[in-house]
Amino acid sequence: MSRSDWAYLSNDLIYITLALFALSFLSYAYETAFSLRANKADGGKYLDRAVTTKARKIASILFVVATASLTLAVIARGISAERIPLGNMYEYSITGAMAFALAFLLIGIKFDLGWLGLPSSILILLILGTAITLLYRPSAPLVPALQSSWLVIHVSSAILSGGIFLLSNTVAGAYLWLDRMERKGERSEFAKRLPSLESLDQLSYRLVAFVFPLWTFAVISGAIWAEAAWGRYWGWDPKETWSFITWILFASYLHARVTAGWKGRKAAWLCLIAGSSYLFNYVYINVWGSGRHTYSGL
């Protein structure tokens, strides 16, 4: 196969992936809608478990297949460009979505995350949809500034951290939603099947504690690379500034939990704020910002 064949294959796979995630999303939505409606109809007493279990199962299988297809798409993109697929924002987005989906599945082995399938599949659809429509760039070689083995180390750790921060934020978001519901009264019949607030709080914390060192590493490897490529390891370039801010926010989050004993609502909000600063760095600084991280024409 020629390089352009691989590029076409990768694009086709992205479209297939989109379709698969859309189907998975629909099944999750069906599961949710069914249990919500069943709740209304009979006062929440009798939920036909057979229907929801089946819908959930189909949705999960579709999610796994979609993730596999996405992984293949990323690999094919890499083969077509003869390098790691981390050269422009289109590639960061598909690789980031892959990191998110894989983290979701891997962590799902230990914790039951099926109930997060709905928001997760929406998020992935959004990321991939914007990537293929707005951010798409033909597969091409790297600009000289990116021709370095640090690309692999720095960018993959940064993007991977991004995927997992996003997951921790999804969990924190779910926490806040359920917390509100509980404060207003009882959980709805549907929400009763979701994990306890306590375990959501712990999960979101564990995710952050797990990626924070990786994120620190991403920032430091960026600095080492910047020393080799730009002649200074830190220059308050907008991307550097915002990764510093993100770092401080997540560090405060961890610190607040460990020494000040923050948990629950306050911690969840802080987690969301810190996650938004990552997202801001990714979206805003890449697209509208200036600075040295904007070499690849996105």
Binding site: W236, D237, T241, F244, I245, I248, S252, I285, G289, G291
Partner: peptide, 24 residues
Amino acid sequence: ALILLLLLGIASIPGSIFPQRTQS
């Protein structure tokens, strides 16, 4: 120390909004 660290983060924001002499 924590508050100052947070402040340092906040203080660094304007530099990513306004162009800086040292950079551009």
